[in-house]
């Protein structure tokens, strides 16, 4: 099995805070990897390192290597703009642009210079279908994205990300602000997408990690405590701390 990411000795600092401590991990290609852990354990910082979103935070510093399909993402030849097109990201709170549904999905294509109306139409429809949102919005593409429910907005954000055809989808607690129905639809969608692209999802919901993921990593206080196949880790965690977290003793 090939790896999408090989991460070696990753450290992330914000001013004085050492948020991610010496993490090394290999993330497999086209599977769902879940990152679990209590709030503030560095799992979001870890996720944001992979598409270099951390570069936007003033005073953040990194050491260590992140290889994406064998290529160092920090090497000078690799621009963060190209990288972010290949590695899409969905955030904790749905954050559609205050534009129409169509313009939201078309945004990533338009900034790449795509102007042709027919191609845009086709790519927008295709992305909305992949995000399982097309039947609900096909008659109101011109409406504001804010007319949608929270769960629909989050699927719109996924569609928007899929429109630029990324190889990886990073999701930072995508269901944190959704109701159970909305959550179920996102999970269903991710399981469908898993066959096409690599998915890395940060979640504090252990049930979700168990239901969705093939591999899972457990973070505690900035360190990667344990990483392995999901069934194994939930059935027979090797480390006491993991067992305590999974049993709900803390977190």
């Amino acid at each position: 099995m090939s790896n999408a990411f090989e991460i070696k000795n990753l450290n992330i600092y914000y001013n004085g805070l050492h948020a991610v401590k010496n993490v090394s991990i290999d993330i497999p290609h086209t599977l769902i990897t879940a990152i679990i852990g209590a709030s503030g354990c560095g799992k979001s910082s870890f996720l944001r390192a992979m598409n270099r979103m951390n570069d936007l935070i003033p005073n953040s510093r990194r050491t260590g290597e992140i290889l994406f399909h064998g290529v160092d993402i920090h090497q000078p030849m690799m621009s963060e703009v190209t990288l972010r097109r290949r590695i899409g990201m969905v955030f904790q709170k749905p954050n559609p642009f205050p534009f129409s549904i169509f313009d939201n999905v078309a945004y990533g294509l338009r900034i790449q210079g795509m102007r042709d109306k027919a191609t845009l139409d086709q790519r927008v429809e295709e992305s909305l279908r992949r995000a399982a949102l097309w039947p609900e919005v096909k008659d109101r593409l011109k409406q504001s994205a804010f007319a949608l429910s929270g769960g629909q907005q989050q699927r719109l954000c996924i569609a928007r990300t899929l429109a630029v055809d990324p190889e990886v989808l990073l999701l930072d607690e995508p269901c944190a602000s959704l109701d159970p129905t909305g959550t179920a639809r996102i999970e269903e969608l991710l399981q469908k997408l898993e066959k096409e692209i690599t998915i890395i999802i940060v979640t504090h919901n252990m049930q979700q990690a168990k239901r969705l993921s093939d591999t899972v990593g457990f973070f505690h206080l900035g360190e990667l405590v344990e990483f392995g196949r999901t069934e194994e880790m939930f059935e027979h965690p090797r480390i006491q701390l993991t067992r305590d977290y999974i049993m709900g003793h803390f977190g």
């Binding site: 936007l56 945004y107 990300t161």
Partner: peptide
């Protein structure tokens, strides 16, 4: 952030 994450 959403725009940056799309490669803007």
């Amino acid at each position: 952030d959403a725009a940056f994450a799309l490669g803007a």
